[in-house]
Amino acid sequence: MSPSPVATQAPGPSNSDCSSVIYDMMDCLSYLTPGSNDTSPTKVCCGGILSVLQYNPNCVCVGLASTKDMGIEINNTRAHSMPTTCKLPIAAPHCAIPGASAPGASTPGMSPSTH
């Protein structure tokens, strides 16, 4: 019997791979909730985003996608601009958030340049 070949390519992060860090983003929900009156994310929120980006940038996408599974709506424009808003030195991957409009889509009252 000869051993079967084994693929050496590592799979992308799964929910379980990211589950230890995506909860670091929970402090951002008040800022990311549609209609939020928060004008900026908290330092704790930005620190959470930074720790997720340092662990694995794709976990940001996993975390944002999991909000839909939990029945939580988020402001897609704010979500995609979090690394810039928090002035983080690490760029997040551009990821689609199921059930949310694209970041460039026009959404009344949700302009990324409005402060």
Rank of each mutant, 00 (worst) to 15 (best):
T107W: 00
M26V: 11
S101E: 11
L50D: 12
M70K: 13
Y23E: 13
P108W: 04
A7K: 11
G35C: 11
H115G: 00
M26A: 10
G47Y: 14
A91V: 01
A105F: 09
L64P: 07
T85Q: 05
T114I: 02
R78T: 03
S106L: 05
M26Q: 09
T77R: 14
C86N: 09
L64Q: 08
Y55I: 09
T84V: 10
A96C: 04
Y55V: 11
R78E: 08
T39H: 12
T107N: 02
T33P: 02
L50G: 05
Y31M: 04
T33E: 02
S20F: 08
V21T: 04
V60K: 08
T85S: 07
M1S: 13
A65N: 11
G35E: 10
R78V: 07
P11G: 01
A102I: 04
Y55C: 08
T107P: 00
N75F: 07
T33G: 02
G63E: 06
S20R: 12
S81Q: 10
S51Q: 15
V6K: 10
G99C: 12
C45V: 13
N15D: 01
Y23N: 13
C18D: 03
A91N: 07
C18Y: 03
A91I: 00
G104T: 00
A92I: 08
G104Y: 00
S113D: 01
L50M: 08
T84S: 14
I49A: 15
P112M: 00
P34Y: 14
V6A: 09
S16W: 03
D38I: 03
S106E: 02
M110P: 01
Y31D: 05
C86Y: 07
T85F: 02
P34A: 15
K87F: 07
L88F: 02
S2E: 12
G104F: 01
C61M: 14
N58H: 08
P93T: 10
V44D: 12
V21R: 04
A79Q: 06
C59A: 12
A7D: 13
S30A: 09
Q9V: 12
A100V: 05
V44L: 12
G71P: 02
V60I: 11
A65R: 13
C86T: 05
Q9Y: 06
P3H: 06
C61I: 15
P11D: 01
S20W: 04
A105W: 08
N58V: 05
S36G: 07
Y55P: 10
C86G: 03
N37W: 00
L29D: 09
A100R: 09
A92Q: 06
G71N: 03
S30P: 06
T8S: 10
G99S: 09
R78H: 03
S111Y: 00
A96R: 07
V21P: 03
A10W: 02
C45Y: 12
V6H: 07
G48L: 15
L64W: 12
Q54E: 14
T33D: 01
S51I: 10
V62M: 06
S66W: 09
Y55M: 08
L88A: 05
H94W: 04
S106G: 03
P5R: 04
P41W: 08
Q54T: 11
S40Y: 14
I74Y: 07
A10G: 01
H94G: 05
P112S: 02
S14W: 01
A100T: 14
P98W: 15
S30I: 04
N56G: 13
P112C: 02
V21M: 07
D27M: 03
P112W: 01
